[in-house]
Design a protein around this nucleic acid. Structure first.
Lengths: 203, 203
DNA sequence: CGCTAATCTAGAACAAGTTACAGACTTGAT
DNA sequence: ATCAAGTCTGTAACTTGTTCTAGATTAGCG
C-alpha cells in the first residue's frame, strides 16, 4: 500500500505553468498580507497573477485550496529558516516551545497573512484533506526536528499531535482577539510540558 | 468593574420574539443536522422558521453568529445532561477525559450538526468574539466541573485552556476525516494528563 | 380607542465564490 | 510544418451570504 504518498495527479508542469503557479501563490500571499482572509478574492488573485479566473480554478479548485497551498509554501520557507538556527534549549520541551514561539513571532509580522492561512486551514472540509494533511505532516516534522527525536514512540507522537492542536487553536484565539500574545506563549509552554511527560520514560 | 458581563444590548424580548428566536435556532439545528455547515442556508432557515430574511438577520447578524448561538444552545443542553451523571473516574484527569469523551459521543450522534457548529466556531472572526468567548467560558465551566476544582490555580487554568484547544482542534481533524475516533480519544487522554501535572503540586 | 416608534415582511439588489462555455493559444507527436 | 489534444482567456451565469427598501403589523402609551 501507499505507493505514491503525495500528488496522485500531477503530471509535471511545464515551465510556464510552474511560473503561473508561483505568480498565483505570490498574489495570494500578497493580498492576504493586506486584508487577511476576506481580502483574498478569487477575481483579484486572478487579475494580480495575470491569469484567467478559470485557470486559477484549474490550479486551485477553491479559495480554501489556494490558501492552504499558500500555507504549505510559507511553511517550507519557515522550515528552511528554522533549520539555519536550531533552537538552543536544553530539554526537548524547551526547544519545541522555542521553535513554536519563533514561528509565532514570524506570524506576528504578517498577522493578516496568518489570519488567511489559519482560517483556511481550520475551515477546510474533507475535499481539502490531502492538502491539510500535508501541512500537518510538515508541522510534525518541524516539531520532531526541534525535539531532536529520531524514532519517536507512539506516545510521543500523541504528544506532538496535541501540541499541534494547541498550536492551531491558540493561533485562532489570538487572531480573533480572544487571547493575548502572552497567553499564547503560556499555552504553548504549558502543552510542551507533555513532552517531558513522555520523553525519558522507557528503553 | 464588569457590571453587565453578558449582552449589553438585549432589551428583554417579548414572548413572540422569544418564540421566533427559538424557531430560528431550532431550524438552524435541524438543517445543520442534515447537511452540516453548507446545509444551513440563511434563506432556508428563514423559511423553516417562518420569519423574513431581514428578521433573521436582525436576530443573528450573520450565519456564523447563528451557528455559534446554536452551539451555545446545544452546550446548555449538554451541560444539563452531564450534570445528571457526573463522571466516575478517580483522578481529575480521568474525569475530564471521561466527560469530554461523553460529549464526543453525543457529537458523533449528530456529526453534521457538530460539523456546522465547530466549523462556525473556529471560522468566527473578531465580530463574533463575544459569542465565541461565551461558548469558551461555558466549556471551561464544564471541564472545571469535571475536575471538581473550586479554586483553580492559574497553572490549572492554562491546562484547561490547552485542553480546550485540543478538544476543538481534535474535533476538526475528526470532522474532516483526518483523524479516527480512536485517535481523538487518545489525544484527549493525552492532553488530560496535563492536569495531573498541575494538580497536586502545592499548598 | 388612536397615535407613534419599533418591528416584521416580501422581495429586490448586491457581493464574492464557483461553474460553464466559446474561441484563441500551446504543446507534443508525426 | 501540421494536426489533435489539451490549456488558457474572457465573459457570463449561477449560488448563497448579506444589505436595502417600502409597506404592513405590533407594542406600548396617552
Amino acid at each position: 500500500m501507499a505507493a505514491s504518498t503525495a500528488r496522485p495527479v500531477t503530471p509535471p508542469l511545464t515551465e510556464r505553468q510552474e511560473a503561473r503557479r508561483r505568480r498565483i501563490l505570490h498574489a495570494s500571499a500578497q493580498l492576504a498580507s493586506r486584508g487577511g482572509f476576506d481580502a483574498v478574492q478569487m477575481r483579484e488573485v486572478a487579475e494580480s497573477s495575470q491569469v484567467a479566473l478559470g485557470t486559477l480554478y484549474r490550479y486551485f479548485p477553491s479559495k480554501i485550496h489556494l490558501l492552504v497551498a499558500t500555507m504549505q509554501d510559507q511553511l517550507e520557507h519557515m522550515h528552511g529558516t528554522l533549520r539555519k538556527k536550531p533552537p538552543a534549549g536544553d530539554t526537548p520541551a524547551e526547544r519545541v516551545a522555542e521553535t513554536l514561539m519563533r514561528a509565532f513571532r514570524a506570524l506576528q509580522r504578517e498577522p493578516h497573512l496568518a489570519d488567511a492561512m489559519v482560517r483556511a486551514l481550520t475551515f477546510a472540509d474533507r475535499s481539502v484533506s490531502p492538502e491539510v494533511d500535508q501541512v500537518s505532516r510538515q508541522t510534525t516534522v518541524i516539531i520532531l526536528d526541534a525535539m531532536g527525536q529520531e524514532n519517536p514512540t507512539p506516545e510521543q507522537l500523541s504528544a506532538v499531535r496535541v501540541i499541534e492542536h494547541t498550536w492551531h487553536s491558540a493561533l485562532i484565539t489570538w487572531l480573533s482577539g480572544r487571547a493575548s500574545i502572552a497567553q499564547v506563549k503560556i499555552d504553548i509552554e504549558t502543552v510542551c510540558r507533555l513532552i517531558d511527560l513522555t520523553a525519558p520514560t522507557d528503553t
